[in-house]
Design a protein around this nucleic acid. Structure first.
Lengths: 206, 206
DNA sequence: TGTAATTTTATACGTTGTTCAAAAATGCAC
DNA sequence: GTGCATTTTTGAACAACGTATAAAATTACA
């Protein structure tokens, strides 16, 4: 494979992108209408008018369709979020805001998020090589931490991916708490406690 | 496990336990000999002399066999570990020791524990997870935290399962770091950093 | 236009995990 | 022990995932 220069996208490239877009669109529609598990790959293929093998050529597993969709959504909102975050005074404020923002968006479409999330975790767990670039949620968190490190709020000697992982974990805890007991779930309080734990640690503040 | 109450376990119970033991034993043998992916459930069923349906009745997914095996191993070593932990001076010492101990045990086995690890992470990430009693690793960590709370080292106002989850997450980070780049992996250093992050948080120690 | 390379299609396949009715084993009352 | 209800196992068929392969279609390029 030669490297294609940016300007001219070949017809193949364009067709590929069209296919990908159409597949994602129809798949997400089906997921929302009948649920993720209830939607089969053959159904998606049929609906998007490609052969099953072609579908698997684009997305090696069903969850990869979700991944692509979520990634796009995140990218669209990234710049705007960064803009808002930069106006905030400190790291706790930023973390609380971003966690609330994203958790709120998730509580509605729970199944889709759950499938996507488990897939991501599984991928990361089984990857034997380092993931260089952050994307989506992790990128956003990485930038918040970067801001905090610049002002001296956040430790610099700990590897960035550990810090990002910590916040990602807080995020999971929050969502899990919601699903365990939606009735008594207090978003503000939960986010506050989890953020505080990440920032100040388990040590007793004597 | 507490003292075994000798009184009658029914024949059905005994047969079930026998079956379970035999299945785990033969499955683990096959996993070690030909690998996890290369061993099919039908093969396990045949070798353990039960029907496929029965096998699935005991273990709803292949990985659950691994889980049971690991759980048993953990329970066997629990008392001894608690004994050692009680002799240690403080929480960081205890956490570092137990993380090193367990991670070391994992690194020796390779594929089998990677599969088990991914399965556990997946379960942990699942949003529907119910918080029953702590078991295995989580129980051990809960006891360490309890010790720390008694001496005032560890915060009491944060829910226990959040604290346990934090350490579990540290554990995951450590193992992941190993899987991503086994060559440059420094167990002592990694455990030290992760433990420190959990206990002291992300905040810069100014 | 002709040719080589890539992509899509059609199809068959192996594995996981489910379902269901029939058969077997078990528990329990008599 | 005998009879009966309940649970468990069995066997077989089944749906869906994901893979493999060869033929057909499409593309790039000379």
């Amino acid at each position: 494979m030669r490297i294609q220069q940016a300007p001219a996208k070949s017809r193949t490239e364009r067709k590929k992108e069209e296919n990908k877009k159409r597949i994602i669109l129809t798949a997400m529609e089906l997921f929302k209408r009948q649920g993720f598990d209830q939607t089969t790959m053959e159904q998606i293929a049929g609906q998007a008018d490609v052969c099953k093998g072609t579908l698997y050529n684009y997305f090696p597993v069903k969850e990869a369709i979700l991944e692509e969709h979520v990634k796009e959504k995140f990218q669209n909102e990234h710049e705007e979020r960064i803009r808002k975050l930069k106006k905030m005074p400190d790291t706790p404020t930023r973390l609380v805001w971003v966690l609330q923002e994203i958790v709120k968006g998730i509580l509605e479409q729970n199944e889709i998020f759950e499938k996507h999330f488990i897939y991501r975790v599984k991928k990361i767990s089984s990857l034997k090589r380092e993931e260089k670039n952050f994307d989506g949620f992790r990128l956003l968190v990485a930038e918040i931490i970067g801001m905090g490190q610049e002002t001296g709020e956040i430790r610099r000697e700990v590897p960035l991916n550990l810090l990002v992982g910590l916040i990602e974990h807080a995020f999971i805890q929050i969502v899990q708490k919601y699903y365990r007991d939606p009735e008594s779930f207090d978003l503000d309080e939960t986010v506050r406690v989890c953020t505080d734990l990440c920032i100040n640690g388990m040590r007793s503040t004597r």
